[in-house]
Design a protein around this nucleic acid. Structure first.
Length: 468
RNA sequence: GGCGGCAUAGCCAAGGGGCUAAGGCAGCGGUCUGCAAAACCGUUAUUCCCCGGUUCGAAUCCGGGUGCCGCCUCCA
């Protein structure tokens, strides 16, 4: 079974084959670090993580980097405003970002190269472009001459002669030959020179652009050509287009074979973004009681090429759905084996694996894959209610769920440990129930619920689940 | 104005020429339970934004509308 991915480049689903049969090189456009990150941008990182996990399930070794843009205008401006050096200023947001990634259960195998550590590669790349005539220096800034590149615009399908560039933001600050040319290195301002925020190059004292940073990080770490470039649909133009232009011009081939672009998180019909002040951070959602797994499920559970509407109702739905999976897993862990189903469970497991992979292979159709998972959960729940699976089957069910979760990353297989005081409450409640003191046992149940422990009394004793 | 995309139940969301239009959430009725919870069973779209066309057959293909979103600017 091969994975088909929608390639923005060709506007078609294509079957995915990496350059080297056993290894996938993957670059995801990372965050710029100048503020606390929000879930609008996290969607594509969670997606990036899921793609990596799915490729690993399919047997590939994946080298995956999410670059950190720690020297863009925002970071410099923010640092100046905060009267901090850029390094110091960005560090706090890098840490916040990495903390969010951990909360969202993003794989620890992902690399997070920082743009500021790749300045030499940027200079090398720009030098190559100048030598080849794709870039020019003007008044100590370096620009990419897009008229030199025949296929410029082919990723975003843009026709530059029809584009409105009257508002091109850097029109005032720059002296480009053509307003559509984009900046590779920008002459440092007086203020930046004073603060030492610049790099000495043959062209002058400069700072790199976002596009060059992204292109150089990927080029340095992954080489001239890599397999997947993942980004957001909102930055196909100009960012991805420009990254592609830099790579294509410098190395004479498209830097990425698959260009993937995740759709956005919306809030009340508008893109969730800082400029609209409609963002939510992980911390804010955590304060309202939502867990990383719940947020991850929300971000992951619908197709990545469709906009995702954020609402608390939608988050609650995600939370309830995760709870359903938790109940299933905890019930399985605590299940006391029965006589066996004579192959029925094995068949269900086979169907689940097949169904899951068929959906995921179709451009990561998570909704379809989840439908298969829930169909499985339902049938197995029934078998468990009837007390039929034996120990081997019980283990096999848990194993297949783990395999699924190696991709999804939203389940909890820990046999949860209890705090001592909660354990005591459970014992106390057992005693109360034994003497049929319902008032006391209900009081304890409420108390436990307040602490996030949900109780289910089964014929085999009390089963509990924790939300965390 | 240019380019790209979306519209399926109360909400979310798959499917994409003919099989009962997946699945999740919420609701309702039941089984179980001391009561709950969880789980299970049943139930909730004769119909897929509208109008035409192609076809034996359209939610699915084609044409035309309508509404919404993204990018071309900050955000990323």
């Amino acid at each position: 079974m091969t994975l088909a991915l929608y390639n923005t480049m060709t506007r078609n689903k294509e079957s995915f084959k990496p350059l080297r049969t056993d290894r996938v090189l993957m670059h995801s456009c990372g965050p710029s670090v100048h503020d606390v990150p929000h879930i609008g941008t996290h969607r594509r990182f969670v997606l990036a993580d899921m793609i990596m996990r799915y490729l690993e399930l399919k047997g590939f070794t994946v080298v995956h980097e999410i670059n950190i843009i720690d020297m863009a205008d925002n970071s410099v401006k923010g640092a100046t405003r905060a009267r901090m050096d850029v390094e110091h200023y960005t560090r706090q947001y890098i840490e916040a970002f990495l903390k969010d990634m951990a909360i969202l259960n993003v794989s620890e195998d992902i690399h997070y190269p920082r743009a500021s550590r790749h300045v030499e590669a940027m200079i090398d790349l720009a030098q190559k472009l100048v030598e080849k005539g794709y870039a020019y220096e003007k008044l100590h800034s370096v620009y990419f001459d897009i008229s030199r590149l025949d296929n410029y615009g082919s990723l975003s399908n843009i026709d530059l002669s029809r584009v409105r560039h009257r508002k091109t933001v850097d029109q005032d600050d720059y002296e480009k030959d053509s307003p559509v040319d984009f900046t590779l290195f920008k002459r440092a301002t007086l203020e930046e020179l004073k603060q030492g925020i610049f790099y000495k190059t043959r062209w002058g004292n400069v700072r790199p652009s976002w596009h060059l940073e992204c292109a150089a990080v990927a080029w340095k770490n992954l080489g001239d050509t890599y397999d997947i470039h993942l980004s957001g649909s909102d930055i196909i133009f100009p960012h991805c287009e420009n990254v592609m232009a830099i790579g294509t011009a410098a190395c004479e081939s498209n830097p990425a074979r698959f260009w993937l672009n995740a759709e956005l998180v919306m809030r009340d019909g508008k893109k969730m973004s800082r400029s609209l002040s409609n963002t939510f951070t992980i911390e804010e959602l955590a304060a309202k009681g939502y867990t990383g797994r719940e947020i991850r499920y929300f971000l992951l559970s619908s197709h990545y090429r469709k906009p995702l509407n954020f609402s608390f109702a939608a988050l609650d739905t995600a939370a309830n759905t995760v709870k359903r999976l938790d109940n299933f897993i905890q019930r399985l862990i605590k299940y006391v084996p029965g006589p066996g189903t004579g192959g029925e469970i094995d068949q269900l497991i086979y169907d689940l694996k097949q169904g899951f992979m068929i959906s995921m292979d179709d451009d990561l159709n998570v909704s379809g894959a989840l439908a298969t998972v829930f169909a499985f959960v339902k049938t197995v729940n029934l078998a468990i209610s009837e007390h039929r699976p034996d120990e081997r089957e019980q283990r096999a069910i848990l194993d297949v769920m783990r395999t699924i979760d190696d991709v999804l990353g939203v389940m909890n297989f820990k046999e949860q440990h209890l705090d001592k005081d909660i354990e005591l409450l459970l014992e106390e409640r057992d005693r109360a129930r034994n003497r049929k003191d319902w008032k006391e046992s209900d009081r304890i149940r409420d108390e436990l619920s307040k602490r996030g422990i949900m109780i289910q009394d089964t014929p085999e004793g009390t089963v509990w689940t924790s939300r965390k």
